[in-house]
Protein backbone atom coordinates (compact mmCIF):
# COMPACT_ATOMS: atom_id res chain seq x y z
CA UNK A 1 0.00 0.00 0.00
CA UNK A 2 1.14 3.55 -0.72
CA UNK A 3 1.93 5.40 2.44
CA UNK A 4 1.94 8.83 0.78
CA UNK A 5 -1.38 9.85 -0.73
CA UNK A 6 -2.04 13.02 -2.67
CA UNK A 7 -5.31 14.30 -4.07
CA UNK A 8 -7.75 17.09 -4.68
CA UNK A 9 -9.86 18.00 -1.64
CA UNK A 10 -13.62 18.20 -1.15
CA UNK A 11 -14.68 19.63 2.19
CA UNK A 12 -17.76 18.73 4.22
CA UNK A 13 -19.32 20.12 7.38
CA UNK A 14 -19.89 18.55 10.79
CA UNK A 15 -22.34 15.77 11.65
CA UNK A 16 -22.67 14.58 8.05
CA UNK A 17 -24.65 11.42 8.79
CA UNK A 18 -25.19 8.39 6.58
CA UNK A 19 -28.66 9.62 5.54
CA UNK A 20 -26.96 12.64 4.00
CA UNK A 21 -24.36 10.43 2.30
CA UNK A 22 -26.77 7.85 0.81
CA UNK A 23 -30.41 8.41 1.67
CA UNK A 24 -32.82 5.66 2.74
CA UNK A 25 -34.49 5.42 -0.65
CA UNK A 26 -31.31 4.01 -2.24
CA UNK A 27 -30.66 1.30 0.32
CA UNK A 28 -31.94 -1.50 -1.87
CA UNK A 29 -29.27 -0.77 -4.50
CA UNK A 30 -26.50 -3.37 -4.36
CA UNK A 31 -24.36 -2.24 -7.30
CA UNK A 32 -21.70 0.21 -6.05
CA UNK A 33 -21.45 1.76 -9.53
CA UNK A 34 -25.13 2.61 -9.31
CA UNK A 35 -24.81 3.81 -5.70
CA UNK A 36 -22.01 6.20 -6.52
CA UNK A 37 -24.37 8.32 -8.63
CA UNK A 38 -26.28 9.19 -5.46
CA UNK A 39 -23.44 9.69 -3.00
CA UNK A 40 -23.68 12.95 -1.00
CA UNK A 41 -26.87 13.91 -2.81
CA UNK A 42 -27.96 15.78 0.31
CA UNK A 43 -24.66 16.96 1.80
CA UNK A 44 -22.64 17.83 -1.35
CA UNK A 45 -24.84 17.54 -4.45
CA UNK A 46 -22.13 18.45 -7.01
CA UNK A 47 -19.76 15.72 -5.79
CA UNK A 48 -21.14 12.61 -7.52
CA UNK A 49 -20.77 14.00 -11.05
CA UNK A 50 -17.47 15.84 -10.59
CA UNK A 51 -15.46 13.58 -8.24
CA UNK A 52 -12.45 11.70 -9.59
CA UNK A 53 -10.45 8.73 -8.39
CA UNK A 54 -7.88 9.82 -5.84
CA UNK A 55 -9.91 12.76 -4.52
CA UNK A 56 -9.73 13.26 -0.78
CA UNK A 57 -12.66 14.07 1.47
CA UNK A 58 -12.02 16.35 4.43
CA UNK A 59 -14.85 16.60 6.94
CA UNK A 60 -15.50 18.23 10.28
CA UNK A 61 -16.54 16.35 13.45
CA UNK A 62 -18.66 13.21 13.66
CA UNK A 63 -18.48 12.22 10.01
CA UNK A 64 -20.64 9.23 9.02
CA UNK A 65 -22.89 9.12 12.06
CA UNK A 66 -26.22 7.35 11.95
CA UNK A 67 -26.89 3.97 10.46
CA UNK A 68 -24.61 1.00 9.89
CA UNK A 69 -25.19 1.16 6.14
CA UNK A 70 -22.06 0.25 4.22
CA UNK A 71 -23.52 1.85 1.10
CA UNK A 72 -21.83 5.09 2.11
CA UNK A 73 -18.20 3.89 2.02
CA UNK A 74 -19.02 1.49 -0.84
CA UNK A 75 -20.08 4.40 -3.01
CA UNK A 76 -16.87 6.22 -2.06
CA UNK A 77 -14.81 3.18 -2.95
CA UNK A 78 -16.58 2.88 -6.30
CA UNK A 79 -15.58 6.49 -7.05
CA UNK A 80 -12.06 5.65 -5.96
CA UNK A 81 -11.88 8.18 -3.12
CA UNK A 82 -8.23 8.24 -2.06
CA UNK A 83 -8.80 8.89 1.62
CA UNK A 84 -11.36 10.21 4.05
CA UNK A 85 -10.00 12.54 6.70
CA UNK A 86 -12.09 14.12 9.44
CA UNK A 87 -11.83 15.92 12.75
CA UNK A 88 -13.64 12.85 14.11
CA UNK A 89 -15.67 9.90 12.84
CA UNK A 90 -18.71 7.99 13.98
CA UNK A 91 -17.56 4.52 14.87
CA UNK A 92 -19.45 2.26 12.45
CA UNK A 93 -18.55 4.41 9.46
CA UNK A 94 -14.89 4.32 10.50
CA UNK A 95 -14.92 0.51 10.75
CA UNK A 96 -16.83 0.05 7.50
CA UNK A 97 -14.49 2.33 5.56
CA UNK A 98 -11.34 0.68 6.92
CA UNK A 99 -12.83 -2.77 6.32
CA UNK A 100 -13.34 -1.79 2.67
CA UNK A 101 -9.71 -0.70 2.45
CA UNK A 102 -10.27 3.06 2.32
CA UNK A 103 -7.61 5.00 4.25
CA UNK A 104 -9.69 6.61 6.98
CA UNK A 105 -7.89 9.08 9.17
CA UNK A 106 -8.93 10.92 12.28
CA UNK A 107 -7.03 14.21 12.42
CA UNK A 108 -8.54 16.68 14.89
CA UNK A 109 -8.35 20.21 13.45
CA UNK A 110 -8.00 19.08 9.82
CA UNK A 111 -11.17 20.69 8.48
CA UNK A 112 -9.97 24.15 9.45
CA UNK A 113 -6.89 24.01 7.20
CA UNK A 114 -8.63 22.97 3.97
CA UNK A 115 -10.98 24.43 1.37
CA UNK A 116 -12.56 22.58 -1.52
CA UNK A 117 -10.15 22.47 -4.45
CA UNK A 118 -6.95 22.48 -2.37
CA UNK A 119 -4.47 19.64 -2.76
CA UNK A 120 -3.79 17.42 0.26
CA UNK A 121 -0.81 15.20 0.90
CA UNK A 122 -1.11 12.54 3.56
CA UNK A 123 1.80 10.65 5.05
CA UNK A 124 0.21 7.59 6.65
CA UNK A 125 3.46 6.33 8.12
CA UNK A 126 4.52 9.42 10.00
CA UNK A 127 1.01 10.77 10.60
CA UNK A 128 0.97 14.15 8.89
CA UNK A 129 -1.46 15.81 6.52
CA UNK A 130 -0.33 18.85 4.51
CA UNK A 131 -2.31 21.35 2.51
CA UNK A 132 0.01 21.58 -0.51
CA UNK A 133 -1.87 24.65 -1.76
CA UNK A 134 -1.35 26.73 1.38
CA UNK A 135 1.57 24.98 3.04
CA UNK A 136 -0.23 24.42 6.33
CA UNK A 137 -0.05 21.00 7.93
CA UNK A 138 -1.04 19.11 11.05
CA UNK A 139 -0.04 15.85 12.68
CA UNK A 140 -2.41 13.01 13.48
CA UNK A 141 -1.97 9.85 15.57
CA UNK A 142 -0.88 7.15 13.07
CA UNK A 143 -3.29 4.22 12.70
CA UNK A 144 -2.70 1.30 15.08
CA UNK A 145 -0.71 -1.57 13.63
CA UNK A 146 -3.80 -3.78 13.42
CA UNK A 147 -5.58 -1.32 11.13
CA UNK A 148 -2.56 -0.58 8.94
CA UNK A 149 -2.32 -4.31 8.39
CA UNK A 150 -5.96 -4.35 7.36
CA UNK A 151 -5.40 -1.53 4.84
CA UNK A 152 -2.24 -3.21 3.61
CA UNK A 153 -4.16 -6.40 2.87
CA UNK A 154 -6.62 -4.28 0.85
CA UNK A 155 -9.44 -4.64 3.37
CA UNK A 156 -11.14 -7.20 5.54
CA UNK A 157 -12.21 -9.57 2.75
CA UNK A 158 -8.62 -10.20 1.74
CA UNK A 159 -7.46 -10.44 5.35
CA UNK A 160 -10.06 -13.09 6.24
CA UNK A 161 -9.40 -14.91 2.96
CA UNK A 162 -5.74 -15.27 3.95
CA UNK A 163 -6.70 -16.32 7.48
CA UNK A 164 -9.08 -19.02 6.24
CA UNK A 165 -6.48 -20.28 3.75
CA UNK A 166 -3.92 -20.45 6.56
CA UNK A 167 -6.33 -22.42 8.76
CA UNK A 168 -7.06 -24.84 5.94
CA UNK A 169 -3.34 -25.32 5.32
CA UNK A 170 -2.77 -25.91 9.05
CA UNK A 171 -5.58 -28.45 9.15
CA UNK A 172 -4.21 -30.22 6.07
CA UNK A 173 -0.71 -30.18 7.60
CA UNK A 174 -2.01 -31.63 10.86
CA UNK A 175 -3.80 -34.37 8.96
CA UNK A 176 -0.74 -35.31 6.89
Amino acid sequence: MQTILEGRVWTLGRDVDTDQIISGKYLTILDPNELKKHVFEIALPEFAAAAKAGDILVADENFGSGSSREHAPQAMRAIGVGAVVADSFARIFFRNAINLGIPTIEAPGVRAIFSTGDTARIDLGSGRITNVTTGRSIAFPPLPHHLLELLEAGGLVEKVRRELARRRADAAGAGA
Binding site: G66, S67, S68, R69, E70, P73, I92, R95, N96, N99, L100, G155, L156, V157, K159, V160
Partner: peptide
Amino acid sequence: DSHTNMLGAMGAFATGIGPTEMAA
Protein backbone atom coordinates in the same frame (compact mmCIF):
# COMPACT_ATOMS: atom_id res chain seq x y z
CA ASP B 1 -27.92 -2.44 12.27
CA SER B 2 -26.72 0.49 14.32
CA HIS B 3 -29.47 0.12 16.93
CA THR B 4 -28.21 -3.30 17.98
CA ASN B 5 -27.18 -1.31 21.08
CA MET B 6 -30.74 -1.87 22.31
CA LEU B 7 -29.90 -5.42 23.39
CA GLY B 8 -27.41 -4.06 25.91
CA ALA B 9 -30.48 -3.77 28.14
CA MET B 10 -30.00 -7.52 28.70
CA GLY B 11 -26.65 -6.86 30.39
CA ALA B 12 -24.86 -7.73 27.15
CA PHE B 13 -22.36 -5.94 24.92
CA ALA B 14 -24.38 -5.46 21.75
CA THR B 15 -23.16 -3.37 18.86
CA GLY B 16 -23.79 -2.59 15.20
CA ILE B 17 -21.40 -3.57 12.42
CA GLY B 18 -21.42 -3.30 8.63
CA PRO B 19 -22.07 -6.15 6.21
CA THR B 20 -18.45 -6.84 5.23
CA GLU B 21 -17.57 -7.15 8.88
CA MET B 22 -20.59 -9.43 9.34
CA ALA B 23 -19.19 -11.65 6.59
CA ALA B 24 -16.01 -12.00 8.66
